[in-house]
Simulated scan of single mutants.
Amino acid sequence: MTEMKTNFRGQLKHPNIVVSLPSGPEFGAKPILSYFEDAIRQGTVFGDGETVQMGWMILMLKATENGELDVWEPRFGDVPIVWERGASKTYRQLIVQKSVAEQLGVEPSFPSLRQSGVISPDFMASKNFQMFRNPSTGTDSGWLFTTEKNVSSDGRLASLFEIASKRPEVIPFLALPATSSVVLKDGLVKISHGKAEVRSDSNELLSRLPTSDLIG
């Protein structure tokens, strides 16, 4: 396990923030820790039970017996959210979502896992799917998930966290900006934005996503 922490007690009198990565590269903890370090230097004071958004994920800080603040992240599969110590998934998914956006030459537009999307009745059980993003407003991420070209009239709202818990294949694409679309059919992936289009049969990153552990 990789574990890194801030050391502000003598200088800024802020509790140490501890970022652990039970799995994943050691350097993965550094950008997460840097976020908290920068915020603290600018005057932000974090406390027990506070949440922050990083990428599309939400991190929670939990006080320890020795007065430090541990970073916890959601455990997928449990609705409502159950928290687990560490930030491995947060780091991996942040990097993968940024990398997918780069394939189309666009900047990522991160939703929040607390925002909603619209799913068609057959989406959760279907092998193949399509997803389309409209502009995000308020609690609406703008994402539509379906097995058809358009979401049917009896589609329902669901949180992105619920959708991703049951269909983790969508996670790499959630930060694609408005007007983007994704098609997964028979193991092949096609992503598009405007006139730009990338397919998994000619792109190494996309070819690895359906069967990889990059988002786990």
Rank of each mutant, 00 (worst) to 15 (best):
E102I: 00
L206M: 06
E37S: 12
L214D: 13
E84T: 15
P74R: 12
G86Q: 03
K89G: 03
G105T: 12
Q97K: 09
V198P: 00
P74V: 11
L174E: 04
W72A: 09
V189R: 08
D154I: 00
M4H: 11
T44G: 08
F76G: 06
P172D: 09
S159W: 00
D140K: 11
I171A: 10
P31N: 02
Q115F: 06
V118K: 01
S212Q: 10
V45T: 11
R114W: 11
L69V: 05
I191C: 04
M4T: 14
V183H: 10
S126F: 15
L206E: 04
V52C: 09
I95D: 05
L157S: 11
D140V: 09
H14Y: 13
K190I: 04
L144D: 10
E73K: 08
S23V: 01
P135T: 07
G138T: 14
F8S: 10
S165C: 08
I119S: 00
L104G: 06
S136H: 12
Q42R: 15
A175I: 05
V151F: 05
K190S: 07
T51R: 14
P80Y: 12
Q103S: 01
P172E: 12
P22I: 03
R133F: 06
T51F: 05
F145W: 07
G187C: 10
S88H: 05
D154V: 00
P177L: 07
T146H: 07
F173A: 05
G43Y: 10
G49M: 11
G138F: 10
W72L: 13
S99C: 00
V183M: 13
S20M: 10
L94S: 10
L59Y: 01
F123T: 00
D38E: 15
P80R: 12
Y91H: 01
L69H: 04
V198I: 06
E204R: 02
S23A: 02
A178W: 10
K185N: 15
L21P: 03
P31Y: 02
L12N: 11
L209Q: 05
S192W: 06
G49N: 14
E162T: 06
F110D: 09
E148K: 05
W143H: 08
K30P: 00
G47A: 07
G43W: 07
N16D: 13
G49S: 14
F46K: 02
E73Y: 04
K185M: 15
V183R: 12
A29G: 11
V79C: 09
E37F: 03
S202R: 13
W72R: 07
D213W: 03
D78E: 15
D78H: 15
W72V: 06
Q42F: 15
